[in-house]
Amino acid sequence: MEIWYLETSAVNFFMEGHSVDDALATKQLQLNKGREWRLSPITLWEILMTSDEVRREEILYFCQHLFSRELLPSPAELIIPYIRQGMPKVEQAREMKSTSRIADVWRDLVDDRNKTFIIDHKEVRERVKLIQSFTKNVHELIKHGDLVVGSDKAFSGLDGSLSNLVKELPFIQSGEPASSEQLLSYKVALYYIMIVLCAEADFDNEPIKVFWQELGIDSTADRVAYVLRKLPALVHRGPFCVMAYMTISQASGKYPRGVWFDSLHSIYMTYVDRIFTTDGHFQGLRDIIPEPILQQKIHHMDEVELIHHNSNQFGVPNT
């Protein structure tokens, strides 16, 4: 079964001009063709940030009819197993199903479409804004070339700059050549490692908490030191590397507020068969990411031909 991933902009695009019956028919048609349309926890968090309550519930209700009851794993659920596998160039196949709390709720909502999320939406938006504020720093880093890490950041207690930290990477110290573009991607990837992996600044951080508990490492500075010493490959391959490419592709011009979510969405390229979007930033990512296989997975909705199939009264497409 192929997994097709629609990031948030593609969900909104597909919803326009289509009914719930269309969603049911599309779901069944795609399953018949061996394709499972999936959401991720990131998509749901973005939808839950919608301030217009009526619009938010309309989107959720449509998604309950269109998408699989299984969510893709959260970023943390992808990152930690990747590390445990030894950060390979090619990962061992594993089941792409989230076991997070939001995934449990989503399964319940798809099974009973009369249900919806009961959460504090204001709190969600405030938390997202806090996390998004970190990406302003990395945007400045890319534009100006360096960033001094101060004591007011989430990773307090760490002294120095990202440039100096990159110089501490074992493969850099050994004299491995690196272009200015590569060094920049290492710095951005390391920044995200510090935020997500070391400071646990994400929605679903339980797998990360368990990871550090098993290692007995509590302080953020000690975690960064551990990454530099034991996990240096994280800066040049794997999820954080893809996040860095997405962020760098958006670096020119004004700070893009959605870069945090875009960077998280980009992680899924490695784990799905296709990713659909209406966001031009993914086209920019496709232009700079060096892996042809990943480039081919990105499909902008302007490049997709939508074909209408008539369905019966039960939402099942006519053959």
Score class of each variant (00 low, 15 high):
Lys297Phe: 03
Ser219Met: 02
Ala233Ser: 11
Tyr82Asn: 11
Gln132Cys: 09
Gly284Pro: 01
Thr99Met: 15
Tyr5His: 12
His281Gln: 09
Lys254Asn: 09
Tyr271Gly: 02
Ala103Trp: 01
Gly34Gln: 06
Thr26Ile: 06
Ile275Asp: 01
Glu140Gly: 08
Leu48Ser: 09
Tyr255Glu: 06
Glu181Ala: 13
Ala76Gln: 05
Ser98His: 01
Thr247Ala: 03
Glu176His: 11
Phe155Met: 15
Leu228Met: 13
Lys230Phe: 05
Ile195Asp: 00
Pro317Gly: 08
Leu184Ser: 08
Ala93Asn: 10
Ile42Glu: 03
Leu141Arg: 02
Ser133Asp: 08
His265Pro: 00
His308Thr: 11
Arg55Ala: 12
Pro256Val: 08
Ile119Asn: 13
Arg56Asp: 06
Glu70Ile: 08
Leu6Ser: 03
Asn32Met: 06
Asn12His: 12
Ala23Ser: 09
Ser100Asp: 14
Lys254Gln: 09
Ser266Lys: 05
Leu24Thr: 14
Ser163Glu: 14
Asp218Thr: 04
Glu58Trp: 12
Ser163Phe: 07
Arg223Thr: 03
Ser68His: 08
Ala225Phe: 07
Trp4Lys: 06
Ser249Thr: 03
Val259Gln: 02
Ser100Trp: 05
Gly280Asn: 06
Asp279Glu: 12
Gly175Arg: 11
Gln28Pro: 02
Asp108Asn: 13
Lys254Arg: 10
Glu77Ser: 12
Pro317Leu: 09
Ser252Trp: 04
Ala178Tyr: 10
Leu29Trp: 05
Tyr268Leu: 01
Ile293Pro: 02
Gly175Ser: 14
Val124Ser: 03
Glu291Gln: 10
His121Thr: 12
Tyr5Asn: 07
Ala221Tyr: 05
Glu91Phe: 03
Glu53His: 13
Thr270Pro: 01
Tyr226Lys: 07
Thr99His: 15
Ser156Tyr: 14
Leu60Cys: 01
Ile42Gln: 03
Lys33Gly: 04
Glu70Pro: 00
Val196Leu: 03
Lys122Ala: 10
Phe171Met: 11
Arg94Asp: 05
Arg35Ile: 05
Thr277Met: 02
Gln30Leu: 06
Tyr61Ala: 09
Ala244Tyr: 00
Val11Cys: 04
Gln85Arg: 12
Pro239Val: 02
Thr116Tyr: 11
Ala201Gly: 04
Met15His: 07
Ile47Thr: 08
Gly175Thr: 11
Ile195Trp: 01
Asp204Gly: 07
His299Gly: 02
Ala25Val: 09
Leu158Ile: 14
Val166Leu: 12
His300Gln: 06
Met301Trp: 10
Pro73Val: 12
Val188Lys: 00
Val20Gln: 09
Ala201Gln: 15
Asn318Arg: 14
Pro317Gln: 10
Cys63Ser: 09
Glu206Tyr: 13
Ile288Arg: 05
Lys27Trp: 08
Thr277Lys: 00
Met301Leu: 14
Pro292Arg: 10
Gln64Tyr: 14
Ile217Trp: 08
Phe240Gln: 01
Gln30Asn: 04
Gln92Arg: 12
Trp45Pro: 00
Thr50Cys: 09
Tyr245Val: 00
Gln30Ile: 01
Gln64Gly: 00
Asn32His: 05
Ile142Tyr: 00
Val272Thr: 12
Leu31Ala: 10
